[in-house]
Amino acid sequence: MKSTAPDAPSAPGRDTRKQRSDGVEAREHLLLAALRLFAEKGFAKTSTREIAQAAGANIAAISYYFGDKAGLYRAVFTEPLGSAKDDIALYDQPDFTLRQSLQGFIGSFLAPMKQGELVQQCSRLHYREMLEPTGVWAEEIDKGIKPAHAALVALLGRHLGVARVDDDLHRLAFSITGLALQMFITREVIESVRPRLINTPKAIDLWASRLVDFAEAMVAAEATRRQSE
């Protein structure tokens, strides 16, 4: 006999949680598909229809999650690696030793390298943006990189006992940043010549530790130079 009892009520919030989970997954698929296509073809030559098809999504989902193609591109450019200013608190702390500050700076800088293919696509997208600028890179320099650079300059000045920022402090900060940046730029070369140096998270952590050593030596050299003047 068929029961006439009402259906059992759903668990509170269960459907909402499922919808949110599905939404996060759909948005992520769009981001990853867009990253690959934008990196390969650039902003102008990539259509929203292509992106939606590659993500297995309805084209209207792009408008829903990102507003438009430009909003999607901005999210693709900034979200996977984050903005440089987001990591400032990891190294710019008044009670940190110089090594702790350098560990925080270089460690956070290299952390994305552990994401493998994702970070390679992000690097390709950044190169393409420099060649075919849309304005997003200039915006990140102004709002993300400049504040992060200023924080690094300031903490180096504190540890060197330099009261007034000068060009040599900027040179030192750019040089330390370059130690970490070169791993992104030369990744494919490293993988061809000595892949075991970066093919595991542990290997990347070891390299980060070595870069901290090198950066400490650079700061020491700068201190010696200033004392001899």
Rank of each mutant, 00 (worst) to 15 (best):
A44E: 14
G82H: 06
F109P: 07
L125P: 01
M183C: 14
G107H: 07
K114D: 09
P195N: 13
E132F: 02
A163P: 01
E188R: 04
T200A: 13
L32N: 01
A89D: 08
T78G: 14
R158P: 06
I106L: 13
D87Q: 10
R210K: 12
F174S: 11
L81Y: 11
A75V: 09
E79P: 09
L32D: 02
D142Y: 04
E188M: 08
R128Y: 05
G104P: 02
M1S: 14
K45N: 15
D142L: 08
E79W: 15
A151M: 02
Q103W: 11
A208Y: 03
E40C: 05
R36K: 10
S63K: 13
G42E: 12
F105W: 11
Q115H: 06
E129R: 07
H126L: 14
Q103P: 03
G71Q: 05
V24A: 12
A148L: 07
A11W: 10
L172G: 00
E140W: 10
C122W: 10
A180K: 08
A70H: 10
I59M: 13
S123N: 09
R210V: 03
Q19T: 07
R171A: 13
E50M: 07
S175A: 10
R36Y: 06
R27F: 01
C122M: 13
D15P: 00
V24E: 15
G56Y: 04
F43E: 02
K41V: 04
G161A: 03
L125E: 00
K41H: 14
F38E: 00
G107L: 08
L81M: 13
R171T: 03
H29A: 05
P147E: 02
A173M: 00
F214G: 09
L102N: 00
L35H: 06
S3F: 11
E117W: 06
E188A: 04
A150N: 08
G23K: 03
G67H: 15
D87A: 15
L211W: 10
L179I: 02
T177K: 15
H170G: 10
L32F: 08
E216C: 05
R187Q: 14
F184W: 12
Q103T: 07
E216R: 07
E117R: 06
L30G: 02
E139R: 12
A39W: 12
W137Q: 11
S63F: 07
G157C: 11
A8C: 05
F214H: 14
M1C: 11
Q115V: 10
V119D: 01
W137V: 08
M218D: 04
T97A: 08
E28M: 05
I62P: 03
Y91V: 01
L169K: 11
L125F: 01
A54N: 08
F105V: 00
S123H: 15
F43S: 12
A70F: 04
A55I: 03
D15C: 04
G161S: 02
D92K: 01
A180M: 09
I204T: 04
E229A: 11
F174N: 08
L118A: 02
E216F: 01
L90D: 08
L160R: 00
A173Q: 07
A215K: 06
Y127F: 15
F77K: 09
A148V: 02
E132D: 06
E222Q: 07
I190F: 13
R124Y: 01
D168S: 04
R171H: 15
A60P: 00
